[in-house]
Design a binder for these strands. Structure first.
Lengths: 349, 349
DNA sequence: GTGAAAGCGCTAACAC
DNA sequence: GTGTTAGCGCTTTCAC
């Protein structure tokens, strides 16, 4: 008996100890290192020895234990992706793009959702660090990332996505939120709208703040005063959004057009407008599947989620390959897609 | 110099060797095991000792290396999820549900896409096994999973999702594909349709075959003969789907209604029908976001992706907790959501 | 071409 | 309460 420490398990083949290289070695009648050479495709093993080793591997059902390998080599060949919610359609393509890049570099992907909770973001990110991921791609929920400083110092490459890091220097890949929103609002202004509403996400979120800034810039550039009742920021909960939209549309100084700050807000507003008899122009930030088939089709400022993910992952692997440039902020352009809802003229007064 | 193996790096604090428990121990002037006790919240450490250890941990920026812990404990507290494509909206909620359950059990989630390629599914699944994940949730791309037999034998719990495993005994969580499709087609028949087309995914895919079987059953139960030109199975590529749909709608024996076998097919057909002047009834398998806002709103047979994921993950963790029941197949009900497109009557001849 | 020995950083077992 | 020792399964080093 080789393993006297677990007598009760030794009898059961189904849940027995997995074979190790040592087991393969004795089964094949070779040294441990020879097995290691075969498993890792290193040279310096005769064809005959290799055959015997491979036979032993198959016979025993051996598979290399990467935990041990990782411990020894110091690199895990894995990266962690922390995002807000895997179920959000924006993050699906983003994750997939990160995974594809990781795959090219032979790395696996650990996935975690922060649920927009800074504390949870921190837990997930640090759990990944404890696993010694080589790198981290983070869609931040919180705005203070000093907790990551020791990890960055220890060499865990980190790229922030969608929103920049708070209180630490790190790479970030963002959309042109300001310019995209500004252009979307300018598009409405160009169609003759003067009273335009903005409904966005919570103001402490970087993208929400930037998009609101873009709204104000477009209005200002056109010489239009903004009634404070025309802007609303808060959770993307449908009840809140619906109430704010209704208030803007029916108040004393009603808007003739709406700019919505992200896909969830747009969805809620589209549902609301569908039940209205009055035509209201709409431009939304983020594209929606089927947006082209609605009546009217929805005009959007589209982000390229897959490109954002790919760009971030490629930057990450450049860092892992040794790039020592200053932390950089990459801003990716958005695309205004005019489909109809943004081209509705203002209703006559 | 403690680390002479990396002379060029030793000078840089930024990329130095990470501190270990041993480093913390000597910094705090205690033994290694005491640090371990503090880090793992074990009892038997005086408040004063604990404070000194914690100070050393903060001072050095120590974080436990879980790779070493995993190697020693034999459990990785992680599970692997292999699915078709993270970017597909069906899998977002599914992944999220699996992650949430994993989180409750203190496990991390490794994510991989097979891109519907059996070889790639195998690579990803085996890479996860080499990492010694405790369990695996797999949306199979291939139909032969004997390659997993040694892993199952070694105790890696595995649950298949959406489609059953091929040639091995394993748990599976599926939708009621047959019943869902049958009821969806029966719904069209009840509205007076007699010539109904079916456009589905490739026939070797289990869900596609089951849904096609449901179609035939509904037609048969209503005493309706099926013209072979009314069914088409193949890749969900829009060009193929469009061509097949057009053929059915304009052939010598044209259909008055279509049943589409999954969300991608439905999308393509919706786009096609939107350009037609003739009204055609449509029921699709899988729900679509915004389906209720289209004109007409789309009637669907909806699967609950989140529930499927949750059910699979819970079954997995029951296995990990020691459940030794026979492998089981769980079938989750679908929901017919009548919205309009499925209630269009047949066009007069 | 091959193998023995050391050690990656941690936890388990068992001293004291 | 605290520390020492062995060893998880692999890779690295170096001897043969």
């Amino acid at each position: 008996m080789a393993d006297t420490s677990r007598p009760t398990r030794a009898a059961s083949p189904r849940y027995g100890r997995r074979p190790t290289m040592k087991d393969v070695a004795s089964h094949a009648g070779v040294g441990l290192k020879t097995v290691s050479r075969v498993v890792n495709g290193e040279s310096g093993v005769t064809a005959d020895t290799e055959r015997r080793v491979r036979e032993a591997i198959t016979a025993l059902g051996f598979r290399r234990n990467d935990s041990a390998r990782i411990l020894r080599k110091g690199r895990t060949a894995s990266i962690g992706l922390v995002l807000e919610d895997l179920a959000d359609p924006f993050y699906g393509p983003l994750s997939r793009a990160v995974e594809d890049v990781a795959r090219v570099h032979g790395a696996l992907l650990l996935n975690g959702s922060s649920a927009e909770d800074p504390q949870r973001e921190r837990e997930v990110a640090l759990a990944f660090c404890a696993r010694r991921v080589d790198g981290l791609v983070i869609v931040p929920a919180g705005d203070d990332h000093r907790y990551l400083a020791p990890e960055l110092a220890a060499g865990i490459a980190t790229v922030f996505v969608d929103r920049p890091a708070g209180h630490i220097e790190a790479d970030a890949v963002l959309s042109e939120n300001f310019a995209g929103a500004r252009d979307g609002v300018a598009h409405l202004i160009a169609r003759g709208h003067r009273r335009i509403g903005f409904i966005g996400d919570q103001p402490h979120i970087h993208t929400a703040a930037e998009r609101l800034r873009g709204y104000h810039r477009a209005m200002g550039a056109a010489g239009l005063a903004v009634d404070p009742a025309w802007t609303a920021s808060g959770p993307t909960d449908p009840v809140r959004v619906r109430a704010d939209a209704l208030r803007m549309l029916t108040g004393p100084n009603p808007v003739t057009a709406l700019f919505t700050g992200n896909n969830r807000v747009t969805l809620t507003v589209v549902r609301l407008l569908a039940g209205l008899d009055r035509p209201v122009a709409l431009v939304g930030f983020d594209d929606l599947e089927l947006a082209d088939l609605l009546d009217p089709p929805i005009t959007v400022v589209a982000q390229d989620a897959a490109r954002i993910g790919r760009t971030a992952a490629e930057l990450l692997f450049r860092r892992l390959a040794g790039s020592r440039e200053e932390p950089q902020r990459v801003e990716l352009p958005t695309t205004l897609i005019a489909r109809g809802s943004g081209e509705i003229p203002p209703a006559p007064p």
